[in-house]
């Protein structure tokens, strides 16, 4: 399996399912080559696909689990990369708190759903997202120095943040779009897979 074949399967696994364009955007490769790689994975029995949408097959999951320690051996042994992952986990706590504050608001000892009627409250959260994004730039930037592919997530986070600034609120925590949280969640999954860590929640 070529590097691209492997990465395409890995990218598909991070997202669970998607078309060549989605996977190409995630791993930062061109769409046509990713399409070929995914077709190849289907031929190997590592993926299943219909109507241009692919998903990882059980055999593909097993193959990835077996290959991760080999393919990502250098990442796992790279102290700088592991350190930047540890810092990512810290920022992750703040990101999740921020997302919670975006979705819910404190009200007299309890919390209520944020109906987005208070522009000042929402702006306060978006301001916080701005500072958090600056921290993310530093942390993910360091991770990308060691593993350049990770830098692709920073570009996608930037795109989500720009959309939020442009007034598209769905790009904070929306599930069906590449929102800030969607991309972050995928980055988290990618890092856990690269480093062979177990999810804590």
């Amino acid at each position: 399996m070529s590097d691209l074949d492997f990465l395409a399967l890995h990218g598909l696994a991070v997202r669970k399912h998607g078309g060549p364009a989605t996977v190409a955007s995630l791993i930062g490769a061109d769409e046509a080559s990713v399409a070929v790689a995914l077709e190849g994975a289907v031929a190997n029995g590592y993926a299943a696909g219909a109507k241009g949408i692919f998903m990882v097959a059980p055999a593909g999951q097993a193959y990835l689990a077996e290959q991760y320690p080999v393919v990502f051996a250098d990442a796992r042994g790279d102290e700088a990369f592991v350190n930047s992952y540890e810092r990512f986990e810290k920022v992750n706590v703040d990101l999740l708190n921020l997302m919670t504050d975006w979705q819910t608001m404190p009200a007299g000892g309890g919390r209520v759903s944020n109906d987005h009627s208070d522009a000042d409250y929402d702006q306060g959260i978006i301001d916080r997202l701005g500072s958090l994004h600056e921290r993310a730039e530093r942390v993910i930037g360091k991770a990308a120095d060691a593993q350049p592919r990770v830098g692709r997530y920073l570009e996608r986070l930037e795109e989500a943040y720009d959309k939020v600034l442009a007034g598209d609120r769905d790009y904070v925590s929306g599930v069906r779009v590449d929102s800030y949280h969607t991309v972050w969640f995928e980055l988290h999954e990618d890092l856990l897979r690269m480093l062979g860590r177990t999810r804590q929640e």
Binding site: L96, N97, E201
Partner: peptide, 15 residues
């Protein structure tokens, strides 16, 4: 696992 600010909580609230 996870608390009220976990990924699962964020996703379910968004949905």
């Amino acid at each position: 696992l996870g608390g009220s600010t976990s990924h699962a909580a964020v996703v379910t609230r968004a949905l």
